[in-house]
Amino acid sequence: MKKILIFLTLILGSLTFAQGQTLIVGMELAYPPFEMSNEEGRPTGISVDMAYALGEYLGKDIIIEDMAYGGLIPALKTKKIDMIISSMSVTEERKQSVNFSKPYAKSYLAMLVNNKSGIAKASDLNMKGKKVAVKKGTSGHTVAQKYFPNAEILVFDKESAIILEVSQGKVDAFIYDPLTIYKNWERNQDTTTPLLEQFETESQPWAIAYRKGEEDLGAQIDEFITEYKNSGKFNELADKYLGKERAFFKEKNVPFFFD
């Protein structure tokens, strides 16, 4: 009996040690080229490369957990994942639930509008009868309520469904980051127009989210971000995954994520 107990203790101890050497990173693999899956179904993209680099920096194994964007913060709070690296903007509302690292990138919100919507600038959307689509759980939802209170706001779970609605003219505009707007415009040039001009007063900083009370981990993440940035790794990722888009943004004098 004593030998069995000793064996079980060793097994449990090994499991605890293994778990301590592993970090589960939550992200929604639906935002290429930051978070996506390759042809074999494996996670890839800028955020994935960054997550693995962070794991190497911390001496931890990394497991990528794919889940719906709106479920990321609840999963973090209930300890189903250990951190979020999913192009997540820092907002005051989110800061009530989780901690954020120092920003590693910044973005802002742009619009994809239907060509027949009559919308030439952002303020044209703030009218009764106009319909604006947003993705559930994104900062675009909050911003739409603030900047376009007179428009009807429609909330969707899937980006693909929104693009179809805009392309068909069932909604007037889609609010999201400029990279997504640019990519969807490329695929729907006959029916849509990108409005890339920044209509917010401030940009949207992106950061890594972690649980409250885990400030030691947060300090290590901040150190990693500083070192990763200073070594030029963010620019390498941008060139690897976004060379064409970066050149386009520079030509149009549009701010880029890592500028």
Score class of each variant (00 low, 15 high):
9 T>Y: 14
11 I>F: 15
15 L>T: 12
16 T>C: 14
17 F>D: 04
20 G>L: 14
23 L>E: 02
25 V>P: 12
28 E>A: 11
29 L>V: 00
31 Y>L: 10
33 P>A: 09
34 F>H: 11
39 E>F: 11
45 G>C: 12
47 S>F: 10
48 V>D: 02
51 A>F: 11
55 G>Y: 06
61 D>N: 15
62 I>F: 07
66 D>V: 00
69 Y>T: 00
73 I>V: 00
75 A>M: 09
77 K>N: 11
78 T>N: 07
81 I>Q: 02
86 S>Q: 06
91 T>F: 06
92 E>D: 15
95 K>M: 15
98 V>P: 03
104 Y>I: 12
106 K>M: 11
107 S>G: 10
108 Y>L: 03
110 A>V: 09
110 A>Q: 03
111 M>H: 11
114 N>K: 01
116 K>D: 15
117 S>P: 03
118 G>A: 09
118 G>C: 09
120 A>K: 15
120 A>L: 15
136 K>F: 02
146 K>N: 05
147 Y>K: 07
149 P>L: 05
151 A>D: 00
154 L>E: 04
159 E>W: 02
168 Q>G: 08
174 F>N: 06
176 Y>F: 10
180 T>V: 14
199 F>Q: 04
201 T>Y: 03
202 E>T: 15
202 E>V: 14
210 Y>K: 09
215 E>T: 14
220 Q>A: 11
220 Q>D: 14
224 F>Y: 07
229 K>D: 05
236 E>G: 01
237 L>T: 00
237 L>E: 02
238 A>S: 06
243 G>E: 07
249 F>H: 05
251 E>V: 02
254 V>D: 03
254 V>S: 07
254 V>K: 05
